[in-house]
Design a protein around this nucleic acid. Structure first.
Lengths: 332, 332
DNA sequence: GTGCTGAGTGAAATCGGTTGCAGCGTCATT
DNA sequence: AATGACGCTGCAACCGATTTCACTCAGCAC
């Protein structure tokens, strides 16, 4: 069915090696030969089998793109940027949707079976151990949106979540909120843990301010909405730092339903600055996570590892900034 | 580096064929042999190279997942369902992000180079010709969210967009709107064309009702918002059927900014019923497109084609229903 | 004319598997 | 005891490419 190297060689009346060389640039072929081969190939509609060649070259140009965030709209932006970036570099994303049911072990094995050249783990909720499993399996890996450590086992690109927690706390304090709370994502997520830690640490400096905490079950609209509905049964804080933007939007929705005015009755600050945060009917004040930069850096590191797999792991941490919109009251 | 069939064979003291057979079920191997091989394999940490085996078997279990909708949040749901569904069937999604710059020809060739077993085209904005290019290349293909035709060249799964247009028109009329308009997505999208056609056809029955039309540049928040801002400079219709939900949300945002009340001043009905449409701060009345069913059917057809590539192409069209929320005034 | 260089080519081995075929031992049947 | 059937195994060819190596042949210097 499919036309192969051999067919082209026969048609052109040359050896198979010649055809192979004509299709790999940098190979030693005369211009005449190349033309001849290209002609035959065009006539037959030949294009080389990437998988067969990967057998000998050891490269597939396949990159595993692993994530478990298929309910947070910000990840559509993430996937868009990753896939486009990979494609531009001639790499192909093999997408893995890591659900609660799927065994992480399994996906490691699966991706090895397909001999991916590398793996990008795009998630702020996975344990560092997951990404490291790939490294142990000898697969270059970059953990995007991962937790920074001073001695990373794998490449990590992301933000300083602890500092973001502090930042949110400082902002709430500066705006005169006297009782504040952290409304985080799932407790198991490293991003939640770190944001929480930073938030609390900063507020230690202000013993006069009341501080609360609670956690939603996921980084999702529903989880945020549900958690705020629960909180509404008791006494609310004046200002909330929410785990991320989509959580914030869920929270806003619950507040709106309950007739609470934002920012008059309750202040909200999110994190991410996803596209939707700027939509005028949401208009969320938030901490901007520089997603395009993070992804660019991740791809850069990935490419670097492909040429030098023994590269020493590093952490690239990007600064975040506050984007002021309409869900926090103005500074006094 | 990697441990191969040969290594396992040596370690177990058997032939390479024996090892291969031990790993393919249905093969003729004794229980004793299988145990022996499995033991050796476990000791060495062997797992078979899927790509090498694909060379002889002709199957890669790779499925191209092609889309150009990376700015419409509903597609995160779509990707989630597709990837999970494929994974459950033991298939791997090779994701292709079709941007304006990428040459469609190119992605066809690329996916052939990786010998994908099949391709799912998930888009309502691509021309039918695109999906057909795969069929011509001998690759099983399903076009999800594609245009239905009575004699489809490829499998198509989706909705009857013409009927949806009629449905929206009927609904607006029934609610007493006297001047209505279609605010579509990009004109080049078949879904836009069909929804437009149905909408107009139905309104032909009501010559007393004023009807307008305009088109946004994309199915995205910004495009919807921008188009409504433009319309706001003239006289608005009373009721709009918007190309899809995300467009509707952009429209709502522009209306809100302009101080127009929905549904009092202007009525909006969308299409899709994406998760966000139900968020309380959006609360969009819309036509529900049964996305999970469409994806399930797409996967089912794909699987069917894998076992029988010559299967006659069919169109599976699902009915849509109106989901009433808060952006249309009540029936009189 | 000889020797050397270097570019271009093809034969053959190789990558990691699968599979048709032949050979083997075992067992039941006659 | 001979026969046949059957289950299991290994050999070797093959899938579609790449790459090493040896070889040829110009071109050039001497």
């Amino acid at each position: 069915m499919a036309v192969t190297l051999k067919d082209v060689a026969q048609r052109a009346g040359v050896s198979r090696s010649a055809v192979s060389r004509a299709f790999t640039d940098g190979a030693s072929v005369s211009e005449k030969m190349r033309k001849k081969v290209e002609k035959a190939a065009a006539e037959l509609g030949y294009s080389p089998n990437a998988l067969a060649s990967s057998l000998t070259t050891g490269r597939t140009k396949l990159i595993g793109l692993v994530s478990n965030n298929f309910h947070n709209p910000v990840f559509l932006e993430v996937f868009d940027l990753f896939t486009r970036g990979l494609q531009e570099k001639g790499l192909r994303p093999l997408l893995v949707n890591l659900t609660d049911e799927t065994d992480p072990e399994n996906s490691v094995r699966m991706l090895r079976q397909y001999s991916v050249d590398g793996v990008v783990v795009a998630s702020s909720t996975l344990s560092p151990g997951f990404a490291e499993a790939f490294r142990e399996a000898g697969v270059p890996v970059v953990h995007s949106f991962g937790r920074q450590t001073s001695t990373p086992g794998v490449h990590v690109v992301g933000i300083d979540n602890i500092e973001c927690g502090r930042m949110a706390a400082r902002e709430l304090v500066a705006r005169g909120y006297r009782s504040v709370a952290f409304l985080g994502g799932p407790k198991t997520a490293t991003s939640t843990q770190d944001r929480h830690e930073g938030f609390m640490a900063e507020l230690k400096k202000h013993p006069d301010i009341r501080v609360g905490q609670s956690f939603a079950s996921a980084y999702s609209f529903e989880a945020g909405r549900h958690e705020m509905q629960r909180l509404l049964q008791g006494e609310l804080a004046e200002g909330y730092f929410c785990g991320d933007d989509v959580l914030s939007i869920g929270v806003l929705s619950a507040l709106q339903d309950a007739g609470r005015k934002v920012p008059q009755d309750v202040g909200i600050i999110g994190l991410n600055d996803m596209e939707m945060a700027g939509w005028q009917n949401i208009n969320l004040t938030t901490i901007r996570q520089p997603i395009p930069e993070i992804i660019l850096a991740s791809l850069e590191l990935m490419e670097a590892m492909l040429s030098n797999p023994d590269r020493h792991p590093e952490a690239r941490i990007f600064p975040c900034t506050i984007v002021e919109r309409g869900t926090l009251r103005p500074r006094p």
